[in-house]
Amino acid sequence: MNIKAVTSSFRQQGIQFLADPQWIIPSIIAPFMFTVVALYMYSGGGELDSPIVLTAVLGGGVLGMWGNMLFASGFTITYDRYNGTIEPIMMTPTHLIDVITGRSIWNALIGLLNAILVFIFAELIFGVGVSVSEPLFFFPMLALTLFSLASIGLMLSALFVLTRASFVVMTILEFPIYVFSGALFPISVLGKLEPISYILAPSWGVDAMKTAAVAGHESITAFGIYFDVAVMILLMVIYIAAAYILFGVIERNIRNSGTLVRY
């Protein structure tokens, strides 16, 4: 891995992100909307109790993080394709995935800002702050969950290299994570589809966060928070390895078909 390429891509993504005033929409306005929707959805017009506030705010946070991550990952490749910079990147000795990794880390940090803003909006505007019983566990879990989302984004960005219809793919991929991660409602309600949640690293992160936040929360397994972390990290390693393999296969494919520069 070319670390210089990763850090440089991180900086480049930051400069490009801040140069476009539209960044306010996904990073400030969207979290506010997520919070409003999640809180109204869970309140049902009545009072909000503490576990429901946690689910709503956590759900809003994960929604914000994933939405931001997915669209940023998809857009980054689409932009290079449209901008004609994908070929100069491919011509360098640096693997395309190193560039995407740097950008994904930036996107992850913006996703984290997104989640933090959800918590702040919930507290300041709706007066329903999240009380965390184990903050030393909760916040690292939040960061780890975010990076698990980033690792899914990295894997999916390989598909964005392959397709010109990235916006369609992004829209299709947005909702499964909302449903299967357990962020908005417990995965136990998914019935026969529940196993899908187990192969998604963020599900384990969300479970770990709930365990850290609510004393007495029943984890999805009997092993608790450390097991959640172990499975999440294992799944992230699998996603990243899959991303490397996918990028290799896809690079060969597009070098054969000559479809890299079509947009």
Partner: peptide, 27 residues
């Protein structure tokens, strides 16, 4: 490789930032 035309650079970056980015890709 140099290709003719307007595409192939990061427009939101300065000339110097473009060169630094690609220098890093060449390690």
């Amino acid at each position: 490789l140099v290709s003719g035309g307007e595409r192939g650079l990061y427009y939101r970056l300065t000339g110097r930032q473009n060169l630094r980015f690609f220098s890093n890709l060449y390690n």
